[in-house]
Amino acid sequence: MTALVRGVRTPGTATEVPPALRIRVADHVLAPVTVVLALVAVVCAAVTAAGGSVPVPVQLVPFAVSVLVFGLPHGALDHLVPARLRPGTSTLRSVTVVVVLYLVVGSATALLWVVDPVVGFAAFIAVTWFHWGQGDVFVDRLLDDGASGRVGSAVTLVTRGALPMLVPFAAHPAAATAVVSSTASVVRPGAATAGPEGVPVPVRVVIGLVVLGLVVLHLVAVRRSGAPVWRQAAEDAVLLVFFAVVPPVLAVGLYFTLWHSVRHILRLELTDPTAAAHLHHGRLRAPFGRFVRQAWPITAIAVAMLVVLAVVLRRADLGTYLVLIATLTTPHAVVVTWMDHVQHTWRRRAPGAVLQETGS
């Protein structure tokens, strides 16, 4: 009898992700999200062409939803990651290590924001760029495609992280810098990052050229790896257009909730024996329901932190939420980087720590 279990690469037992599971993930998890982003881009382009604009309350909906659905909760199982990926690690030790990590790294991040909120936001962008890029590298390994090797993985990381982090500043400079200024002012009222015009035109042109160059380099790297280019090209194109035509708040909120968080939750569920078995047999809803049940206690703590922060700062807006996310993202990225190391994510083939077969 064959069972899917958690684990680390063990000689003679690590196996690739079953092809059927790859197809299910690609067709029923990844593709629908790509289609949704493409449709939103079409609608926003049509609204703009008609001389209209997307109402601000509508733009905020994805971020509001992300407080409880996918977004904020997607890191709520970090405390279980060491126990899941290192056999012999007790739950107590796993929780202790991750809690200490969050306290130390999260506090350092918060201190940076207090000292200089503009630098804090810049660091937030840099960490998020890296973290969101590494999420797509893992998906490439899960599907056993994409650019291969460490160089190819680095190209994927830089390109996929650049699309959500850079394109809004080139395509919507005033709106993007307004978010930065508003968030910085949460910690230091009156903090400003740019004038009302946003990013100067020459800088926008440079950003645009850099992003286009990265996309081309990414596709070349995929091609040279011998992997199919169509999925990568389609995703690159959709993301490029999406962030170019959709208002930044709406675009980043949707991407955070539907693209990045869903992919990370899928990664977590593949480290859980029961959820991995459900996925292996084509049951996609059960693992996400299991995640919700496991994640709600930490999610509740994070929501309580958000409420306390809003009361202390006397502000309950997107800027306050982003400050909390920035504080949590840095330690979360450290945990995911450790996962990359243990699961050999930057290798060509699917990570051995994703699934294993054991005879019983």
Rank of each mutant, 00 (worst) to 15 (best):
R223A: 04
V54S: 06
D140P: 01
L270H: 05
G190M: 10
P189H: 07
L92H: 11
S90M: 08
G133D: 09
V311N: 04
Q294K: 14
L157V: 02
G161T: 12
L240Y: 00
V99G: 14
R188P: 00
A191F: 05
G12K: 06
Y255E: 09
I298F: 01
V323L: 15
A333P: 09
P287I: 00
H74K: 00
T15V: 01
H344V: 03
S53Q: 13
L21D: 02
E357W: 13
D145S: 11
W346M: 01
P189A: 10
V308E: 10
P273K: 05
E197N: 02
L77V: 11
G51D: 09
L4V: 10
L279Q: 12
V104H: 06
V201M: 11
V119K: 15
L214T: 09
S360A: 12
S360M: 14
H172T: 03
T156E: 07
P55C: 13
G282E: 01
A20Y: 06
R24T: 12
T96V: 09
V252N: 07
L209P: 10
R24S: 11
F124C: 04
R263H: 05
D236K: 13
V342P: 12
V5R: 13
Q343H: 14
P117I: 15
V158R: 00
F124H: 10
T345G: 07
A300H: 02
D272H: 14
W230S: 03
R315Q: 11
Q59M: 07
P297M: 11
V206A: 07
V65P: 04
R267S: 08
T358P: 15
L143R: 02
L112S: 09
A350P: 13
L324V: 11
L163W: 08
L258H: 01
T89H: 03
F70R: 15
V199E: 01
W338E: 01
P57R: 03
L324K: 04
L68V: 14
A227Y: 03
Q356S: 15
G88C: 06
V115A: 13
V335D: 04
V5T: 12
V36G: 12
M1H: 02
A123Q: 14
T183M: 08
T89F: 13
A191N: 06
R188N: 05
